[in-house]
């Protein structure tokens, strides 16, 4: 089946099997390996991407379901202006250790602060509760997303 998905601003057209998972299409079809696979059951969230701006676990969406839609992966977070505030904040606040859950966590954080410019500790925790992390204990991830929100707000003000 031929599909066209806009991934990080570029149209990718491909002939895919209907059963092919979006995550596999992103990783091996588009060659973007920043999106990871962790559990096969939609539980861990490391495969999260943004589909039309909303976090989606790409191991539970078929590639054909993303036909005609816009997908953002970690590789699309950075812009011509430099790192996205969540990327900078994850590094500044030590919000990552092994880095395996990080792309997904940052995308969820980016989507959250798009909607909520000043999320509370609980609001961040609720937003990322579909994403597991085994290294950090989440404290610095929460701090990073809040710091990113603050940075994004101050950028917007300037």
């Amino acid at each position: 089946m031929e599909i066209t998905i806009n991934i990080n601003g570029t149209d990718h057209t491909a002939d895919v099997e209907p059963r092919r998972l979006l995550v596999d299409h992103i990783r091996t079809g588009a060659g973007l390996t920043g999106t990871h696979i962790g559990c096969d059951t939609t539980s861990c969230g490391v495969c999260t991407v943004l589909v039309d701006g909303t976090p989606v676990k790409s191991c539970t969406m078929l590639a054909v379901q993303a036909d005609g839609r816009e997908v953002t992966t970690v590789e699309g977070l950075k812009s011509a202006d430099g790192l996205h505030p969540v990327q900078q904040a994850f590094s500044d606040e030590h919000g990552l250790q092994c880095g395996f859950c990080t792309p997904a966590m940052m995308l969820v954080g980016a989507a959250l602060i798009d909607e909520n410019p000043a999320p509370s500790d609980d609001e961040v925790r609720w937003a990322i509760s579909g994403n597991l992390c085994r290294c950090t204990g989440y404290m610095n991830i929460v701090k990073a997303i809040q710091a990113a929100a603050a940075a994004a707000s101050s950028n917007g003000d300037s």
């Binding site: 990783r27 973007l32 390996t33 920043g34 999106t35 990871h36 696979i37 992966t73 970690v74 590789e75 977070l77 950075k78 790192l83 990327q87 994850f90 590094s91 500044d92 030590h94 990552l96 880095g99 395996f100 990080t102 792309p103 940052m106």
Partner: peptide, 17 residues
Amino acid sequence: KRVEDARLIEGQGNFLD
């Protein structure tokens, strides 16, 4: 600040898969 972060926050890590 960690030097490994630069690649990991841009999806440029090199994991087994």
